[in-house]
Design a protein around this nucleic acid. Structure first.
Lengths: 340, 340
DNA sequence: TTGAAAGCGCTACCAA
DNA sequence: TTGGTAGCGCTTTCAA
């Protein structure tokens, strides 16, 4: 029925010009006399008129839409990230066009689509882009911000947890706990998160003269962490301290350890990374390093707004440090950390 | 730089008319000679031209955008739902405009925004709308489909798990297991999922002469489930069989039971609902009823497409039955179910 | 097979 | 404070 009530219809009914109707519905509603405005609003209500945003985009050449590309929606950390982004952006009257991509592949397929939709900016989480794509985005003057990934040397801004420092923090804590044999369960090999966490952890251990850390791949999944821990514990020289590159793997690792009759943390300390809600669950009580999601998101949005405002802002890398959350899955050290 | 390459620019470069360029980039690219097409494609490539989708929406009055409103992105069940929707829709070249709403409040605030964006259809998950909003959507001829909620008597189509049957299934299983004292940990009170599950469970128990089921609210959260189970177990007449309206609460309940020194399932059987990935985790091995997410999503998309094609299709309610997943959190019955 | 021209529903500039 | 009008970049008739 009222499918297509346009500003002209409202204008006709209110006995004013279409321009006036447009003015009334403009954000910064300029110079319309109160009476006229009332008449227009009234007519609009009667007709069930709502401005067509697409047409507005067309003439303002601004969509107020932010594209978000997310490769890992399923994976306890990201839904929270997504929700938070949505809330923040909705509050500022920006809409979100959401895309998935295969995890940690480059997102080259969806990017052109996002660009064609004239998004005001693009946030890419847990995925990387090829350098041609970086080029294309730059060319189209669409600000791109990587969330929790970065590309060395590329001309893209990024916001990341300080994964290197996190890895070091964990090494320190385990060292102070008096552990002697160390393991690392790795996340997806080609991700900057994994390589930084590993580098921080192993580098710090090496500083203390520990060179042979046992490394097993865990793929950032529960099943992967479970399998990796099983392998480690069936060695003749099993570790007594293991850092898992994320919490989900750590949880899988704890379950595996229990199944093999080990007590955590008495026989074996396990530390994760992320501080997802499940880390608090009674069955795990996981010691971990938090990703300060809220701070990361704030930083991302600030960066985005700045880039939208001034498109030739220089590229930045913002590192957000995490905090050690001491719970019960690693042998305690008496002086550090705080629980939650 | 090439910010605004339009079809006119391409036309000029290729020495053809703008209409021709448009034809070349139309899906059903009609009647363009191969040579002309080549020239146009070539020119477009040289200029880095990509059709402006917003303008296309403007003239075709079709956005190919589906709005999804999701109230519970954080909550282990929904991220999977979202990802699956995205994949399916992306495959069919539809984009997704995503909105959050406060959980299980009505979504009246975001709906107008979605409608103004001229979405081709609207999928609302885990949230309800007011009857005025139903009215407004109908009026604007925008198909709306509720996912995992429904509104009695309202004129909106919906796809739901068969929650009633699920509740009955669980009652039957617990009865056959020889349990004698029953409890129910409820989800959010005003949701159709909760009331149906409860109705199925309690109704079936009543059929077998069991009238006093202990009911505690759990709010669909881990913490809520944990607290509710603590209350139940501290009664003088604690239950030995508890159905938790979702898996997360069941997991919280198991942790609470362990903390109070109970063994699951020897002292107490606990059953959940959803079959989220964590239900498989070694620490829980949760017996539960699955929501057949893939089937539900397929049904939703089919319904949506049908509504888009024929807007005065009658409203439908599709119920998708779930399956009992027998694991180790409830005393087994020897004859039923299958594991995963 | 191609081109010219009229919209799609708005915003924004210029005049009145 | 208001109205007229020229776009925004495309699709889609209608003619050639």
């Amino acid at each position: 029925m009222n499918e297509n009530v346009t500003s002209f219809d409202v204008a006709a009914r209110a006995g004013v010009s279409q321009s006036t109707v447009s003015r009334v519905f403009s954000e910064n509603s300029p110079n319309v006399s109160p009476e006229t405005r009332d008449r227009v609003v009234q007519a609009a209500r009667e007709l069930g008129y709502r401005p067509n945003v697409i047409a507005r985009m067309m003439s303002t050449r601004q969509t107020n839409i932010v594209g978000i590309v997310m490769a890992n929606i399923v994976s306890p950390f990201y839904p929270y990230v997504l929700e938070k982004f949505l809330k923040r952006l909705q509050e500022m009257d920006r809409q979100v066009l959401l895309f998935t991509a295969a995890p940690d592949q480059s997102v080259d397929d969806v990017l052109p689509v996002a660009l064609q939709h004239q998004v005001d900016a693009l946030i890419i989480t847990s995925a990387t882009l090829s350098s041609e794509m970086v080029e294309i985005c730059a060319h189209s003057r669409t600000p791109v911000i990587l969330f929790n990934r970065y590309i060395k040397g590329a001309n893209v801004s990024a916001v990341c947890a300080d994964n290197l420092a996190g890895g070091q923090l964990i090494a320190d804590y385990l060292l102070k706990g008096g552990h002697t044999r160390f393991g690392y369960i790795a996340g997806q090999a080609n991700t900057s998160t994994n390589s930084e966490r590993q580098r921080g952890y192993i580098g710090r251990l090496r500083t203390f003269g520990i060179d042979d850390v046992l490394i097993e791949p865990g793929d950032y999944t529960y099943v992967g962490g479970h399998a990796a821990m099983s392998v480690l514990l069936q060695r003749s020289d099993p570790p007594n301290a293991v850092f898992c590159a994320n919490d989900i793997m750590a949880i899988g690792a704890i379950d595996a350890a229990h199944e093999l009759g080990r007590h955590v943390p008495d026989d074996l300390s396990i530390i994760g990374f992320d501080d997802i809600p499940m880390a608090r669950w009674g069955a795990y009580r996981l010691t971990t390093v938090s990703q300060e999601v809220d701070a990361m998101i704030d930083a991302t949005i600030d960066l985005m707004l700045a880039k939208i405002a001034d498109s030739n802002l220089q590229t930045t890398l913002r590192l957000i440090p995490g905090k050690l959350k001491v719970r019960d899955s690693a042998r305690p050290v008496h002086e550090e950390g705080q629980d939650t």
